[in-house]
Write a protein that binds this DNA or RNA. Structure first.
Lengths: 349, 349
DNA sequence: ATGAAAGCGCTAACAC
DNA sequence: GTGTTAGCGCTTTCAT
């Protein structure tokens, strides 16, 4: 009987009105109560008598009612929506942070609105404006370099904002990351102390990668290393471009004994492959330092020496910071949280 | 004067009211027009006189007004929100489809609400319900196997739904993908015709991968190949687990001359690395077929033979299908679109 | 425990 | 070209 009743519902017809049309008022009518009571039953069942609750639940089941969160958000000024901006979701480095972030936010009842900025500030401006119109309760930003306009919009929005993957003296609100300059310098120290006196860099078109590169070069020179060979790659880091860059280096002829500081493990793996294909020994003839310590880094041959960053922690700490800001007690979060990094020594350097 | 005026705005104070409090009515007051005129100026400037438009724009600039899309959506029953569900965003295979999809949707003014299902049907149910309450104008689903409850909710919602990465006789609405059974069988044909008579599979815990595996085995046997060695990996496909699986195969001793059909290029790369580390020749002693033809597949040593699927096309075709359904003329889209696949022969098999 | 009224900030008719 | 009047479907506040 129950199933046959629900089978007859008009909502089974997808091009027809559908459950989108059922409102709390309708449920109330079916359950013999007012619309507010339905609202209460859903937001805090303890405020409603057991029998009423039963009838309401039954009516919801029968109609396939789905509450309209848009209306709820408008009335309560709480959207339960979080906007998240990443340079690119196809880059594991960012998507893993996003994953960790959204898992936690989801657990607290928040939905994620995602947008990619593609490393472009203009794009970020458009996207931030569009997202803010959706009245998110909070926002996740990647990086700390934003246009004045973006900063203004965000400050004006009056919502918690977390910037990840970098640190700065002037966060918009909360900021969780590490110093890319420090990472580059640490890599240079590591290289120098491992005995290398010649070095090269392979860097993708990413602001943060460029800061690591610059810090690496400056520190390496400062400690007395030879002048560093700089290879900049236009797009993003791939195994392919890594191989090409490696080839460039190898063909220069003067790369023997160099250590190559890569802006990502993809590049580093490319060097490994190209070196193996050309019979160049790693690390004996060419040493490699990756960045990101991606999942595969420990399993290449030789295993990659890489700069490890806890990408998941970046995401989960960002989520925790937001959640914390939502509490009335909020504000307790430190404005800047440096999670640091670690150089993981393996076989490649 | 202009800048000093805006500098004094309360919206510059982030913990204060912020721009979130400015409404169209406020803008109207400042510009000396009614609220509706402001609404018109924003949605269709041609409906408003040039001078009025100017004053409205100025007022918006001064206040940092950001329209409330929540209210707009409620009033117009058009949210400009699209819900997208993927098993995992850290898997490039899915994130690239999502990327292509969201680029196009963004170009048409739609925002993406993202959720991960982690290959779990229960999880998908929760997530679909939560997302539907946000009244998205359309939804992207990965895969075609959904619980009855999900199908019911979606049919009831009366919005366009695109299922990607698979095909089925019974799509919820529109479906764009390819037959995994056909892909597995094609790989078996390829292997057999390449002369291999022994085979193995390495498969991650993914429904679609399992269907490819089963079809591979059944076709390989059917054509007279030896019984296929099946290695199933619990989690997702990584270089690490690929190496481990390869080791398992190699240590069995009877793998010489086998071809291994992998559920992803990550696995395939793992086999390559492990084989090289153990001095096992590829493809002479062990041949490898990957799946996905990821960016790196062409640049490993040897380059990977893999089943190529146009992941971007999957995303962009899905977006086009939705956009098309939104047009009054809509419905013209074919319910099922099989984009096929292609076996790319390289060095590994 | 439940209801009535007001209103969130917009868009959609319909006037003029 | 612009204003007025009604809602959209909820939550909030105040009664009862």
């Amino acid at each position: 009987m129950t199933s046959s009743a629900s089978d007859r519902l008009p909502s089974a017809d997808r091009q027809a009105s559908g459950s989108g049309r059922v409102t709390m008022a309708d449920i109330g009518r079916l359950a013999g109560v007012s619309q507010v009571t339905v609202s209460r039953a859903l937001s805090d069942p303890s405020k409603v008598s057991a029998e009423t609750l039963q009838r309401i639940k039954e009516a919801i089941r029968l109609t396939g009612f789905v509450p309209n969160a848009l209306a709820g958000a408008l009335a309560s000024s709480k959207s339960n929506l979080i906007a998240a901006l990443v340079p690119s979701i196809t880059n594991v480095v960012y998507s893993s942070t996003l994953h960790a972030f959204s898992e936690i936010m989801r657990g607290h009842g928040y939905q994620i609105m995602l947008s990619e900025t593609g490393h472009s500030q203009e794009r970020e401006e458009e996207v931030v404006a569009a997202l803010l119109s959706r009245r998110p309760d909070g926002m996740l930003l990647t990086g700390v370099h934003h246009s004045p306009s973006v900063r203004r919009m965000l400050m004006g929005a009056g919502i918690p904002v977390v910037e990840v993957w970098d640190v700065t003296e002037t966060p918009i609100d909360v900021c969780i990351g590490f110093s890319h300059a420090a990472a580059g310098a640490a890599a240079a120290d590591f290289a120098f102390e491992s005995g290398y006196r010649r070095a090269a860099t392979i860097t993708a078109a990413d602001q943060r990668a460029e800061r690591r590169r610059d810090a690496f070069i400056s520190r390496f020179n400062q400690r007395g290393g030879e002048s560093v060979v700089k290879v900049d790659v236009a797009g993003s880091a791939t195994l392919k471009t890594g191989r090409e860059a490696a080839l460039q280096l190898i063909e220069r002829g003067d790369s023997r004994g160099s250590v190559v500081f890569c802006s990502s493990d993809q590049f580093a793996q490319g060097i490994l492959v190209e070196a193996k294909a050309r019979g160049v020994g790693v690390p004996s003839e060419l040493a490699v330092i990756g960045f990101g310590d991606q999942e595969f880094a420990a399993y290449t041959e030789p295993a990659l020496t890489s700069v490890r960053v806890d990408r998941d922690l970046l995401g989960s700490a960002a989520a925790d910071a937001l959640i914390n800001r939502f509490k009335p007690s909020g504000q307790a979060t430190a404005p800047v949280h440096d999670i640091g990094f670690e150089i993981v020594k393996r076989g490649s350097a």
